[in-house]
Design a protein around this nucleic acid. Structure first.
Lengths: 162, 162
DNA sequence: AAAATAGGGATATTTTTTGTCCTTAATAGA
DNA sequence: TCTATTAAGGACAAAAAATATCCCTATTTT
C-alpha cells in the first residue's frame, strides 16, 4: 500500500505555489519542467487540486494555477485527499457475514471491531496530516534550502510564467 | 491507496486462532471455509504470518496454524506489517533533485521536508496499530458477538481441525 | 488572428493485487 | 508401512490500479 506519486508531486507543487507573488499563475508546463515530471500526467494531479477547490485556474498565456486559499488555511490532508481520495485505507468486506454458524437472518449491528480499529488508525494518519499546514512546510523549506537556491528557483519558475 | 484484503483476512484469522485451545492447530482449509475465502490465496497470507514468526505451523492431518505468542503480545501492527510489509506508505522519489537551479554537485542533506512530514503521519498510523493488541480485539468481539454464535463458531472451526 | 492554457476523454503500458494450479516434504493415524 | 492431509512455495493467469500519452475543445491573453 503506497500512495500515488501524484501525492508527492502535488505537495511540492503547492509549496511552490505558496511562494507565488499575488496575482500570478504557474502553468503545468512550468511546474512539470521544474520538478522533472511528465507534463500530461502532472496535469491530472493539478486538475484534482482544482476540482477540490484548493487552487484557482485561468486560461490562456500567463494562465495556470495559484492557491485558492492562504497557505495557513491549507493542510497536508487537503492536498493528500484531493489527489488520493477520501476513501479510508482499510476496506471492510464484512467477511464475518460468511460465518457458516450465523443465524440465517442475522443482521450485524454496525461495522465490525476489526474495521473500527483499522479506521481509528486511518484517522490517526489523517489527523496528523490535518495538523500540518502548507505554511509549516514553507517555513521549514525556507530555513533548510540555501537562500540563493530558494531565490533562484522562484525566478526560474516565474520566468516560465507569462 | 488501499490495504490488501489479505490484511483483513489475517486479522480475522488471528482473532480465531486466539481462541484456540492449547495445543490445537487450525488448517488453511478450516479458516478459509469459515470466512468464505479462497483457500489458496488465504494460504499466502498465513504464510506471511508464519514467515514473520507470528504463528507456528505443523504438517499433516490435524496440522495447521496456531499463534506463536500470547494475544497480549501480538499487536495489530505485527499482523498488518507481516502481510502488508514494513515499507512506508509514502515513497520519496526526491524530485527536488530535478530542480534545474540547483548547483551541479548539490548534495541534499537528509530527506526532504515533504517526506519527513508524510513519514510522521505514517508513524502516527503505525503507532495506533502498535497500541492495539490482539487480545483487545478478542475482548471486544467476545462482548459484541452473541455468546451462542461465539461458541458455535469455535465448535465449527474445531470440528474441521484434526 | 494566433499562441498558450486548463479540462477532460480515450487509449496504452506497467505494476500490483488477486487468484489458481501444481509439486514437494513432513506428519499423523490406520 | 501406507495413506491421507497438511504447509511451503514456485509458476502462472486474470483483474485492477497506477502511470502515463495523445488529442480535442473552449477560453484567454497578446
Amino acid at each position: 500500500m503506497i500512495l500515488k506519486s501524484q501525492v508527492e508531486w502535488a505537495l511540492h507543487c503547492c509549496a511552490i505555489l505558496a511562494g507565488l507573488p499575488e496575482g500570478r499563475y504557474l502553468s503545468t508546463k512550468a511546474l512539470a519542467e521544474f520538478h522533472g515530471l511528465p507534463k500530461e500526467y502532472l496535469s491530472k494531479a493539478l486538475q484534482s487540486l482544482s476540482q477540490a477547490g484548493l487552487v484557482d485556474t485561468t486560461l490562456g498565456p500567463s494562465g495556470g494555477y495559484r492557491l485558492a486559499k492562504a497557505p495557513t488555511d491549507l493542510t497536508f490532508l487537503d492536498i493528500v485527499e484531493a489527489v488520493e481520495g477520501k476513501t479510508r485505507t482499510f476496506v471492510c468486506t464484512n467477511i464475518r457475514a460468511n460465518n457458516p454458524c450465523r443465524a440465517p437472518g442475522y443482521c450485524e449491528s454496525g461495522p465490525c471491531a476489526v474495521a473500527r480499529i483499522m479506521w481509528e488508525a486511518d484517522e490517526a494518519w489523517r489527523g496528523k496530516l490535518r495538523s500540518v499546514r502548507l505554511s509549516d512546510l514553507v517555513d521549514t523549506l525556507s530555513k533548510e534550502i540555501p537562500a540563493e537556491l530558494w531565490k533562484k528557483s522562484f525566478e526560474w519558475v516565474l520566468g516560465r510564467a507569462g
